[in-house]
């Protein structure tokens, strides 16, 4: 009997090894371990054995059973892996075929520049103010120390609705509106569209955008203005950007300055963008004129402040290398999608 068991074991392990499918393994299991299986039959016929032999044979059968079970399980695993490998092979794809991504749109370059500037000033505790584009000459000029016979009015070609109502030529009237309604400390920037009667060409547009900045508090100094603008220039145009103040004149600031930045395209070496100067004129600024503070109900003996205003399109053009301002307002999607 023992030999019979051994033989069954040997034959079975051989056929397990040769098995090619799950079905074959099942057949083997039934043939050997099933109700009428070879080993089962041996167990049943054990009645003819002596009491001493019975446990020994019983043990042998159980051992054989266990071994065969294990072999089958292992083979099953092998077959499964083989099958999986086969499937994976058939599922091979060309990963260089085009994707099905969503076509993302774009934010206009003017907004992108405004957003960058906003971020810097929000971080420094400024709020963002807004004002009307169709403005009164009272706010656009009078409150800003530019009375009707002031020669500075000629510098800006104004679109008139009536004598008293105009299209704002600058974002500065927002300054006056804010000062009239808020108490210091005031820290605002104001981005927005402004209008001047310039014919549209590669560098001019009757509508363009400015960002105005205003700070009014006790003990505000011109060095604060310079420091703030330097911070702005470094954060928006690059950490190595240098700033230079030149004396200038604006009716609503005194002292006034024009601020140049080292060319952020060539780093100051001189290039086409900075016309070989190494500097780019960035903005106009100055200490808020005492007359303006007074006009808006703020006592210049107690408070001082600074203001600045810069053109957005010029920065966008220099930064993105756009050589024609008209592109910004033509809105061709092939242009827009580049940003």
């Amino acid at each position: 009997m023992e030999e019979q068991i051994k033989k069954i074991q040997e034959n079975t392990s051989k056929s397990i090894k040769q098995a090619q499918s799950k079905q074959e393994l099942n057949d083997i299991r039934v043939k050997v371990l099933g109700k009428k299986g070879e080993l089962t039959l041996i167990l049943r016929s054990m009645g003819s054995l002596s009491a001493e032999e019975r446990p020994i044979v019983g043990n042998k059968v159980n051992e054989a059973k266990k071994e065969i079970e294990e072999l089958i399980t292992q083979k099953e695993k092998e077959l499964k892996i083989k099958e999986l490998e086969k499937r994976l092979e058939t599922e091979n794809i060309d990963i260089t075929e085009p994707s099905k991504k969503i076509n993302i749109g774009s934010i206009h370059p003017i907004t992108q520049i405004i957003d960058q500037i906003k971020e810097v000033f929000l971080g420094m505790g400024y709020s963002i103010a807004d004002g009307p584009e169709v403005e009164t000459s009272h706010y656009n000029f009078d409150q800003l120390n530019t009375p009707s016979d002031h020669p500075a009015r000629d510098l800006q070609d104004t679109f008139y609705i009536t004598e008293d109502v105009i299209l704002r030529t600058q974002t500065s009237p927002v300054q006056a509106r804010v000062m009239e309604t808020q108490k210091p400390p005031i820290k605002i920037i104001c981005p927005g569209a402004v209008y001047r009667s310039d014919t549209l060409d590669a560098t001019h547009s009757p509508v363009f955008h400015q960002i105005e900045g205003l700070v009014v508090d006790k003990n505000i100094t011109m060095t604060d203005l310079k420091g703030t603008l330097e911070m702005f220039a470094k954060k928006c145009l690059g950490e190595n950007t240098k700033i230079r103040f030149r004396p200038h004149h604006f009716p609503f600031t005194e002292p006034s300055a024009e601020a140049d930045v080292s060319c952020f395209v060539c780093g100051g070496k001189g290039c086409r963008v900075c016309k070989q100067e190494g500097w780019i004129e960035l903005l106009g600024c100055g200490m808020v004129h005492p007359n303006v503070l007074r006009n808006c109900g703020i006592d210049p003996e107690v408070y001082s402040g600074f203001a600045f205003g810069c053109g957005v399109e010029r920065i966008a053009m220099a930064k993105f290398g756009i050589d024609d301002l008209r592109l910004l307002y033509e809105n061709d999607v092939r242009f827009l999608k580049q940003f």
Binding site: L122, K187, D224, P247
Partner: peptide, 23 residues
Amino acid sequence: ARFYGYDKLDTTLANGETTIGLL
């Protein structure tokens, strides 16, 4: 300031009351 030199002006940041920049 013009003849002291605008380029000689320091760069400082106002240290007044803290304001919060929010949209």
